Amino acid sequence: MEVVDPQQLGMFTEGELMSVGMDTFIHRIDSTEVIYQPRRKRAKLIGKYLMGDLLGEGSYGKVKEVLDSETLCRRAVKILKKKKLRRIPNGEANVKKEIQLLRRLRHKNVIQLVDVLYNEEKQKMYMVMEYCVCGMQEMLDSVPEKRFPVCQAHGYFCQLIDGLEYLHSQGIVHKDIKPGNLLLTTGGTLKISDLGVAEALHPFAADDTCRTSQGSPAFQPPEIANGLDTFSGFKVDIWSAGVTLYNITTGLYPFEGDNIYKLFENIGKGSYAIPGDCGPPLSDLLKGMLEYEPAKRFSIRQIRQHSWFRKKHPPAEAPVPIPPSPDTKDRWRSMTVVPYLEDLHGADEDEDLFDIEDDIIYTQDFTVPGQVPEEEASHNGQRRGLPKAVCMNGTEAAQLSTKSRAEGRAPNPARKACSASSKIRRLSACKQQ
């Protein structure tokens, strides 16, 4: 084909351009004929944790799935940006308080904090938690009735009371019990989460009196709706648990309003109706937990002794299953770290194939690490110290990083047969305790 000078094309009309061969290198194709290559998922490591896909996002930050490269346990990490926390009232204080509380709590029905990582340079905090497959609110939203069968609701409620009793025994008032803060594992274990607005009572406090509340409006008791200066913290949790039980068994809320002012007005009056299909035992329990006067409201001991709580409820309806993943529609909620794991395991070791967030990740503290002497050669063979940054567990980050890069360049065919977990650990520049 004859090559045409581009400067001469402006002298031709459209018809003349076609005659000189423009149609031979300008093609129009339908979008259905285009085959897009999927974007390669680059592996990203935060300390010893391999990052997966997004699980959810809230006002405080994002939650992603991660894999512990040492234990191969599935975890969830809450990623918090200090810049964003400053824009939220009491944001930083709530996060630090939640970390302090979770560090000393150990119960099967309370979410466990596994690790805390802090990135000084990017001003990011990573709260590594045990993995929960789904939230209770997500399960309720997945069915038209917006409720659980009585047998399933009873099982979840009993676990909620177990976890709540443990928190109260530790002198902690949750203040925000609701389905949105109750998570579930694949085995059906309920976990109380989000202790950001919780309050730890003084060890020598005479009672459970509280003065502040930041919980969700629909789950607040009349004493808070009416603006009382002080109130019983434990009875606030009992009320919120009662509203939660009402919601998961009926699909409704005892109090509603077009806006928060109308909602608080209705809560302050204390008038509500219980659907007739709840039955006398459940209705009596709800009335005891939603008692207007805090002094007359049920205690956890009274809830445990109630006939509806103690009764064994046979399954009359099919239980609400864990819904498919909202993004991938995966009904099994498979591990989202698998594509990243395959990338590390299947590809040659190259620095361009993975990302390490930083050479140094500070753990379990908000301060910069200490310094240790770096050896410097002298005339008599002895070495003197220069400062060298280290990880919180004493690992020399720069030395590990250099060693990792040197190993990656060394030709050794046997290394390709290593397991995925050992490869992740070798790529991680800074081991965590």
Rank of each mutant, 00 (worst) to 15 (best):
R409A: 12
S142L: 08
E57G: 07
V66E: 01
E121M: 04
C210W: 03
I192V: 10
E357M: 13
A295H: 11
P413C: 08
G394H: 15
P222I: 07
S334H: 06
P411K: 14
D330M: 14
R86W: 01
G215T: 08
F204L: 08
A410Q: 08
Q123E: 07
G56H: 01
F234A: 10
V243T: 09
V114A: 04
V320H: 14
V66F: 03
E70D: 06
G52S: 13
K388W: 13
R426T: 08
C151W: 05
C151N: 04
Y156Q: 01
A389G: 12
L117Q: 10
A206V: 02
K312F: 05
P281R: 05
H168S: 04
K262I: 04
D68V: 02
T244Y: 01
T395E: 10
R40E: 11
A417R: 14
G10V: 05
E342R: 13
E57D: 05
H27Q: 04
M136G: 00
P149I: 01
E121N: 14
A218V: 06
I35D: 15
P369R: 12
S325E: 09
H345D: 09
T249P: 00
I260E: 00
V150L: 02
I322T: 05
D176M: 00
M335V: 11
L286V: 07
Q305G: 13
N412F: 09
E342M: 12
I161W: 00
K287D: 09
S31H: 00
V197L: 06
S334W: 03
R75G: 14
I111Y: 05
K44R: 07
C151I: 03
I192M: 09
I88W: 02
Q220D: 03
V372G: 07
V150G: 03
G370E: 11
Q123R: 01
W308V: 00
I267F: 03
D207E: 12
R425F: 07
D176N: 00
A389L: 13
V128Q: 08
R425I: 05
K312N: 14
C210V: 06
P339S: 11
H174K: 01
F231N: 15
P89N: 15
V320Y: 13
N393M: 12
Y166T: 07
K78C: 01
C391R: 14
S419F: 12
P280R: 07
D141E: 05
S69M: 03
K329P: 12
R310T: 05
L105Y: 10
V114F: 06
R86T: 15
L386R: 12
Q305L: 14
T367Y: 13
D350C: 13
K41P: 14
M136D: 00
I29N: 12
V150Q: 01
T244H: 00
V368C: 14
L285H: 00
I177M: 03
V116P: 05
K108L: 07
R74S: 02
L245S: 00
L54G: 09
D229A: 05
L9S: 11
L54N: 15
I177P: 01
N380C: 14
E342A: 07
R383H: 14
S169R: 05
K48A: 04
R40T: 15
P369T: 13
E14K: 02
Y272E: 09
E120W: 03
E223R: 05
H313D: 08
D348N: 03
V337G: 07
R310D: 14
A410R: 14
L45F: 07
Y118R: 06
N412I: 08
I248R: 00
P294R: 03
P89M: 13
I303V: 12
S325N: 12
A198V: 11
Q220S: 08
